[in-house]
């Protein structure tokens, strides 16, 4: 279907059905494959606490770079990128608090172009909180300890944010 207009020409190209032709339905429920996929993630989650240590080290090193130059755009971006990647993975493996804390940190980094001493301390607390969540394997909401971690972070945000 084409719809020409002299001033604002708009051309419509019909949706392709090629993909549909390549993807037939199987006579099984998707729930079987989804359960299998969830099991795969559960297995991966057992290793997550180990390989996330490398990410935490990257968080710390990019944070140190920012401390050395609190106005550095590159340092802010580097810290943001590590935080962003980790926040996506945490929730996938059941570590919702990692996602929550680092989402908060990403927002905090987005809003500023430089950081004073108090604000750097607040960033450090975010990183410490992530470490605590991983060390104590606080999955989901993290129970009582999870509550304390988040409460401590909120208090610091109110004080230094």
């Amino acid at each position: 279907m084409e719809n020409d207009d002299t001033e604002y020409p708009v051309r419509y190209i019909p949706a392709s059905k090629v993909l549909q032709a390549k993807v037939p339905f199987l006579d099984v429920s998707p729930n079987i494959a989804l359960k299998k996929a969830n099991n795969v993630l559960e297995e991966m989650a057992k290793d997550y606490v180990n390989w996330v240590q490398e990410d935490i080290k990257r968080l710390e090193s990019t944070y140190q770079d920012l401390c050395e130059d609190p106005k550095s755009k590159d340092a802010i971006t580097a810290l943001y990128r590590v935080s962003y990647a980790m926040k996506g993975q945490g929730g996938t493996f059941g570590y919702d608090l990692v996602t929550f804390i680092l989402n908060n940190l990403c927002r905090y980094l987005e809003e500023r172009e430089e950081f004073n001493e108090g604000q750097l301390e607040l960033i450090e607390l975010h990183i410490e909180s992530v470490r605590m969540v991983i060390t104590h394997e606080l999955t989901g909401k993290g129970g009582e300890m999870g509550k304390q971690v988040i409460m401590g972070l909120k208090q610091m945000i109110n004080k230094k944010g």
Binding site: L19, K22, V23, P24, F25, L26, D27, V28, S29, P30, N31, I32, A33
Partner: peptide, 9 residues
């Protein structure tokens, strides 16, 4: 409910 066969994509 039926599963989509994704093996050919």
């Amino acid at each position: 409910a039926k599963m989509l066969d994704l093996s050919n994509i």
